[in-house]
Design a protein around this nucleic acid. Structure first.
Lengths: 335, 335
DNA sequence: CTGAAAGCGCTTACAG
DNA sequence: CTGAAAGCGCTTACAG
């Protein structure tokens, strides 16, 4: 089925020129006279020749590949980001390699940061060890970031985004506002929690420990938060909650609804991310929209700039947006 | 920041052996005497040497990469499949390259099917041109398939899966059952539509043109189907609908709920896929569960088998499961 | 068990 | 404008 691959020497023989000339026609046609060029081009067409990338890369000391290090490929949150990355890397002539940092061990992580594996790295996992990444292949961080790693970061302002959600609820008249956080140790968790606390403090609203539920971004964490919330006395528990992810907000809403609680009449909910389905559930979720595709695109563009020798050290902060839908309302009178 | 990469000759010099010996210690240590091996290993450790993949691949005439051709990376449907693929490719020593067939042109498609680019292909897009893929790199098809392309396929039995949904609704007592299909021309659309028609016919139930809505798997298509369904007279329209995707089912439910229609009291809905959120919305969606991660894993395993020289021509059919939740019930009396 | 040498398929100074 | 030659960094028959 598969025939022997034609190589540059086959084309050279057919065109009656040297391999050097064939190579020049392919990479820098203007260097070659029109006649020779035409002869080579027809030989290329006749043989269906396509250059061997491994050989070309070896010669150029590059790989043509960029690795995206994803914390959890199975999480749909990353699909639009990866799509954004792919949309700029492809046209720029780079391959997109994807590695799931959770399933691949630390040893493989080092492999990915090898110059012979990839020309650059897009790091989407802030929990990676800085020392494994430092001083290796050029990289940019997107969404999350590794605390002690100096690299261009493309991200949102998580603290003020979280503040936006709080402000919206406070404006509606809520006084007891709770927060369901991301996983402990995650950089986003800390930033969003801090932003929540700051926004609450700025309005003179309380933020006791009991108003904070430890989550992990998952649907199940939202369900667990619902169980805890339901267990609190109705006149003490928060009348509104902000969540560090839409998935958790969704898990919470589903769980409380099964207990006869109405959203937003009995409790207001604000998510975080603006994943796709969330606008179509009932109630449609009020949330903080992250520019998923843009985060991926801009991260890829910045990496390309670094590879082209224009680092530009500052972080790129992309804007978020509060999307008000139907899961938030003024608190019930008397609450 | 980055120092010159150490290469095999550096290690050889330090260990006082030839590059051939270093190479042997790395790839086939048993070939080398214990003393030499130890000397080489400590030289490797001292220099932090890691082999250059491009060179090794060139010599081996392989790339170490597998390309997954995805119809739309932004669609979260693929995240678990890709995760399954990555979980077997990584440990097997392959890189996973991802290409979005919608954003990359036909020319780039040919590039991906180049032996110098990838050792194999996992095709997740049935709308690709067979001739571009034929006679090139080894490949397997997963989920979807290209009609005229002979290759191992890893998929579900879409027709009987669709039949499962119909049978469930018929068992509940529904007589007017509709279907919202996938995009025209898609192989899954055809199989699921045929399975729906066959199951309906087997039970002597009607399946008029008016009971079929043309969808495209998207949330918006579900909304459009809702508008059409709402426009039909209540005593004529289907009392239950099966959908070719959960996203469409979700769009439908959201839209009809906003019009005061209750699911499942006023209309029963069965989705297809079992994506993550769907169990947490209200009502929780009854659906056909596809084994997403397993589809990816098995596809990768079959490709590995092909690359190892054990093709095994038949398709692998993975089982599906009807997951009954809360979006289906007996039709209202008198309907 | 080990080394010298050829070669994987390209590209690019260096001459001419 | 074009060719001969070296070399990118490995691996593997082939000798010994």
């Amino acid at each position: 089925m598969r025939h022997i691959r034609t190589k540059i020497s086959d084309v050279a023989r057919l065109a009656g020129v040297s391999t050097a000339t064939v190579s020049r026609v392919l990479s820098n046609p203007a260097m070659v006279s029109a006649d020779t060029r035409a002869a080579v081009q027809s030989a290329v067409a006749a043989t269906g020749y396509r250059p061997n990338m491994a050989a070309r890369n070896l010669r150029h000391r590059r790989t043509g590949g960029i690795v995206a290090l994803v914390p959890d490929l199975a999480n749909p949150f990353f699909s639009k980001i990866l799509s954004g990355i792919a949309s700029v890397l492809g046209p720029a002539g780079y391959n997109l390699l994807i590695a799931d940092t959770r399933t691949s061990g630390a040893e493989r992580l080092l492999d990915y940061a090898e110059p012979s594996r990839a020309d650059g790295l897009i790091v989407l996992d802030g929990s990676l060890p800085a020392e494994a990444l430092r001083g290796r292949v050029p990289l940019v961080e997107a969404c999350e970031w590794v605390p002690d790693l100096a690299a261009p970061r493309v991200r949102i302002d998580n603290a003020s985004a979280a503040g936006l959600a709080v402000a919206h609820l406070a404006d509606l008249g809520h006084r007891r506002i709770g927060h369901v956080s991301g996983p402990a140790g995650n950089v986003l968790t800390q930033a969003r929690l801090a932003g929540t606390a700051a926004a609450l403090a700025a309005r003179g609203l309380p933020f006791p420990q009991t108003a904070i539920h430890d989550g992990d971004f998952s649907l199940e964490a939202g369900q667990r938060a619902a169980a805890l919330w339901l267990a609190q006395p109705a006149d003490h528990r928060p009348t509104a909650l902000t969540f560090a992810s839409d998935a958790m907000a969704c898990g919470f809403i589903g769980a409380v609804q099964r207990h006869g609680i109405r959203v937003p009449q009995d409790v207001s909910v604000v998510g975080f991310d603006d994943i796709e389905l969330i606008a179509h559930i009932t109630p449609a979720l009020t949330t903080i929209r992250q520019p998923h595709a843009a985060l991926g695109r801009v991260a890829a563009q910045r990496l390309l700039a670094v590879l082209a020798g224009q680092p530009g050290a500052e972080d790129t902060i992309l804007p978020v947006e509060l999307v008000i839908r139907s899961s938030t309302a003024a608190p019930a009178p008397g609450r």
